[in-house]
Computed example of a mutant assay.
Amino acid sequence: MRWKASEFWKNASPNELLDFFQSIEQGADLKSLADHMLVEDEFCDLVFEYLWLLRSEEGSKRFLNDENLTPELLMKFIYFGYGKQFLSGNFDSNSYFLQVRTLFGSGQSLRILSLAEEMDRDPTLKIHLLSNLDPQTWEAYFDILEEKNMTMQTLLGIFSNLRENEIRKILLNSHTLYYYLRMMMVSGIKKSNEQTPKEMENRMRLVSILESIRVWETFCQNLGERFDFKKESALSPNKRDPDRLSLVLRELTKVPSLDREDVLVYMKSNGAVIDVWEETTILSALGNFDRDGKYF
């Protein structure tokens, strides 16, 4: 159990630490380590320090998604990183949660969401974790809501604490969350005369945001009827139909510069933009257009 030796943590190189996280996630001693992290704060912070430094590595991500790590430990890790980013300056919590959510899979996100009190204190984190859920875990989350006697209004109410631009950014970056919210608005909302004025206000605001994103949903659907995204993705970039990117560029030119990357993420998740090459090309062309009035 070399993790119990303090000298290991003091002297290990980044490669040795990465090897450690990769080996322990395969089952060797992980539960024992996780239990020790729960009772020894200083040791826990030390492990988190290295996990944070190596967070982009697949071995670290597998470690963070192991079920031996309790939801409480995962929350501590999230706020450990939050503190690191905050101290670095130029901090935006929404951007941080957009980044940190990518470290967790759907199942692990659901486990964190089960911490009801902690989630209620941080609606921004809650929404980002919800955006990680796949259809199967969404069903499991609905079961959690029922067990805790929470209504759909309670769930939708978390959006009332966020600004419209924050909600729009989150939904553009999560096609699944957008889809499920659309479904909730249709099937899970009380009749108008059963809602409080505040609930009605929240609902109308969210409807407005969803409708603004639906414009892009419709655009992607129409583009999909004209171009076969699957066939296009099988071709090298120089063999793809240039008209598709021309149409995307034309529409994105109408979007404020600050919103373009988020809309582009949404288009990519819907297949209208195929890969990183197209994404980079589009952003470069838009930059040229803003500066010189022409794409290329």
Rank of each mutant, 00 (worst) to 15 (best):
46 L>P: 00
85 Q>W: 11
42 E>G: 06
277 W>S: 14
188 G>P: 04
76 K>L: 02
284 S>C: 09
208 S>Y: 12
214 R>C: 06
84 K>T: 05
26 Q>R: 13
256 P>T: 06
129 L>K: 00
98 L>S: 15
153 Q>V: 08
49 E>I: 03
126 K>N: 07
294 K>I: 11
279 E>G: 09
35 D>V: 01
61 K>M: 06
222 N>Y: 12
170 I>V: 10
253 T>K: 15
255 V>C: 06
87 L>R: 12
239 K>Q: 14
238 N>E: 15
256 P>N: 08
76 K>P: 00
84 K>P: 03
146 E>C: 00
22 Q>E: 14
186 V>R: 15
31 K>I: 00
11 N>M: 13
257 S>E: 14
276 V>S: 15
124 T>F: 08
258 L>F: 11
67 E>H: 08
202 N>K: 12
140 A>W: 00
155 L>D: 05
214 R>K: 11
139 E>K: 02
96 Y>D: 12
63 F>N: 02
154 T>G: 07
150 M>E: 07
90 N>T: 11
295 Y>K: 07
247 L>H: 05
155 L>P: 02
103 L>G: 06
159 F>E: 02
241 D>F: 07
246 S>W: 13
158 I>E: 08
8 F>D: 03
11 N>F: 14
36 H>V: 00
208 S>R: 14
106 S>G: 08
184 M>D: 11
237 P>F: 09
72 E>S: 10
225 E>V: 07
190 K>Q: 15
185 M>C: 15
208 S>A: 14
219 F>L: 09
169 K>E: 15
39 V>Q: 06
190 K>H: 14
180 Y>R: 11
124 T>R: 13
33 L>R: 04
98 L>N: 14
217 E>N: 08
124 T>I: 15
268 K>I: 05
36 H>F: 01
110 L>I: 01
249 L>V: 01
188 G>M: 04
182 R>T: 14
189 I>L: 13
62 R>N: 09
159 F>A: 03
68 N>H: 12
119 M>F: 04
241 D>L: 08
156 L>Y: 04
260 R>I: 13
202 N>C: 11
132 N>P: 05
281 T>L: 10
37 M>Q: 06
215 V>W: 14
190 K>V: 10
115 L>W: 03
204 M>A: 10
37 M>G: 01
49 E>Y: 07
201 E>M: 10
154 T>S: 09
79 Y>T: 01
174 S>N: 10
74 L>Y: 03
156 L>H: 02
178 Y>A: 05
116 A>S: 10
223 L>P: 00
87 L>P: 03
147 E>G: 04
56 S>V: 12
89 G>S: 11
296 F>Y: 08
217 E>L: 13
266 Y>T: 02
171 L>Y: 07
104 F>Q: 01
275 D>Q: 10
210 L>Y: 06
134 D>H: 11
57 E>C: 09
284 S>Y: 13
149 N>V: 03
206 L>Y: 05
197 P>Q: 11
214 R>L: 05
145 L>P: 01
245 L>T: 10
229 F>Y: 10
139 E>W: 00
172 L>G: 05
85 Q>K: 15
93 S>V: 13
201 E>N: 10
106 S>L: 06
105 G>S: 06
122 D>M: 04
213 I>V: 06
275 D>C: 07
290 D>Y: 13
217 E>P: 02
155 L>N: 07
247 L>F: 11
7 E>H: 09
265 V>A: 07
97 F>Q: 03
